[in-house]
C-alpha cells in the first residue's frame, strides 16, 4: 500500500519534471539556455564516468580526453569529409569508445593512483597531439565551421531548439544507464569494485569487465563531445584539457558517485556554479575551490544524499 503510493508520487514527480523541462525554454534567454545545454552535455559525460568510477571504481582522469575524441571525430567527419552530423555524432561516440578499448586493455591492469596518473598522461597527450597535429586537428586554432544539426526543413541551429535534442539524448542516456545498472553487466562492475581487494589478483574476467566499464564511459563521453561540437560549431584543444577531467570527476563526487541522478545533479550544479559567481571577479575561483572542498569534507556521499533528507522530511519516502 505504502509502496504503491510511493510509486505514484515518484511517477507524478517524474511527469512534473518532464513537463517542466519541455516548457522551460520558453521562459529562458539565450544565455540561460546555453548554460543549461552545457549542463545537459556535461551530465551525459558524467553519467558515463559513473560507469568507470562510480560502479567499477576506476579512477580515471581521461574523461575530458574522450569528450575531445568524440568532438574531434565528429568535427573532422562533418567538415573535411562533409558527412551528415546525424552520422558523424554516433561515429564520434564510437570513435571515443574504440580508443578507450585500445588504451584500456593494457592500462586497466593498473590500480588506484597509478591508473589516475596513466589516464592523466593520456589526457595530456591528447591535448599535445591536438595542438600539434595541425593538418588534421587544426592546432590551437581548432576546427571551426562545424555544421549544426538539422531535421528536414527544421534547422536545430538555435540553442533553444538544440535544447530538445540534448534533452532527448540525456533521457536516452539515462534510461540506458539505468538498464545497464540493473543488468548483469552493471552488477558485475560493482562486484569488481567491491571484490577486487578480496579476490586479489585481477583475473581475465575482471579485466574484461573493467574494459567494458571504461569503454561505456568513453562512449558517453564521446557522445557528449560530439553534441558539444555541433552546438558550439567550434572545437579547440582548450576545452578538453586535463582540468576538465578533474571537473567531471568533481561533478560526479559532488553529485554522488554511484548514482545516476547524482551524476546529473553534480553536472548541473558544477556547470552553473561559475556562472553564478561571475560577479565575484578574481575571487571567484578561490570561492569555487573552497566550496568544492567544503562539499567534499562535509558531504562525503555527495549532494544526492541531501535529497534523501529532504524527501524524508516531506514524507515522500514512505516508512
Amino acid at each position: 500500500m505504502t509502496a504503491l503510493r510511493t510509486m505514484d508520487r515518484r511517477l507524478l514527480a517524474a511527469i512534473a519534471v518532464f513537463v517542466a523541462a519541455l516548457v522551460l525554454p520558453a521562459f529562458i534567454s539565450g544565455y540561460g539556455i546555453r548554460i543549461l545545454n552545457l549542463a545537459l552535455i556535461s551530465a551525459i559525460a558524467v553519467i558515463g564516468l559513473n560507469f568507470a568510477f562510480g560502479y567499477a571504481g576506476l579512477i580515471t582522469l581521461a574523461q575530458a580526453g574522450f569528450v575531445g575524441c568524440g568532438a574531434y571525430v565528429t568535427a573532422i567527419l562533418s567538415t573535411t569529409l562533409g558527412l551528415s552530423p546525424w552520422l558523424s555524432i554516433p561515429a564520434g561516440a564510437v570513435g571515443a569508445c574504440v580508443i578507450a578499448v585500445v588504451i584500456g586493455l593494457p592500462m586497466l591492469r593498473l590500480k588506484g593512483h597509478y591508473l589516475a596518473l596513466a589516464t592523466l598522461g593520456f589526457n595530456v597527450s591528447f591535448v599535445i597531439v591536438a595542438t600539434n597535429w595541425k593538418s588534421v586537428m587544426g592546432g590551437t586554432d581548432g576546427i571551426s565551421g562545424i555544421p549544426p544539426l538539422a531535421l528536414p526543413g527544421w534547422p536545430l541551429a538555435t540553442d533553444h531548439r538544440y535544447y530538445y535534442v540534448l534533452w532527448v539524448a540525456l533521457a536516452v542516456a539515462t534510461w540506458c544507464a539505468w538498464r545497464i545498472r540493473t543488468s548483469h553487466i552493471g552488477l558485475a562492475m560493482i562486484a569488481v569494485r567491491d571484490d577486487e581487494i578480496a579476490t586479489g589478483a585481477a583475473s581475465v574476467g575482471v579485466t574484461r569487465i573493467k574494459v567494458q566499464a571504461f569503454a561505456l564511459s568513453a562512449l558517453y563521453a564521446g557522445l557528449a563531445g560530439a553534441l558539444f561540437a555541433h552546438m558550439t560549431n567550434f572545437v579547440a584543444p582548450d576545452d578538453f584539457a586535463l582540468g576538465h577531467s578533474v571537473i567531471y570527476l568533481a561533478m560526479l563526487i559532488i553529485g554522488g558517485e554511484g548514482s545516476i541522478l547524482g551524476a546529473i545533479a553534480g553536472a548541473v550544479i558544477v556547470t552553473f556554479m561559475p556562472e553564478l559567481m561571475r560577479d565575484l571577479g578574481t575571487a571567484y575561483l578561490i570561492v569555487f575551490g573552497g566550496l568544492m572542498l567544503l562539499i567534499l569534507i562535509f558531504l562525503p556521499k555527495g549532494l544526492i544524499s541531501l535529497t534523501g533528507i529532504v524527501a524524508r522530511r516531506l514524507g515522500m519516502v514512505g516508512r
Partner: peptide, 18 residues
C-alpha cells in the same frame, strides 16, 4: 543547514537562468 544549502543552490540556478 543542508536543506538550506540545497534550496540556496536551486534558487541560485534559477536566478542565473531567469
Amino acid at each position: 543547514t543542508r536543506r538550506t544549502a540545497l534550496s540556496g543552490m536551486v534558487a541560485g540556478a534559477g536566478i542565473t537562468i531567469y
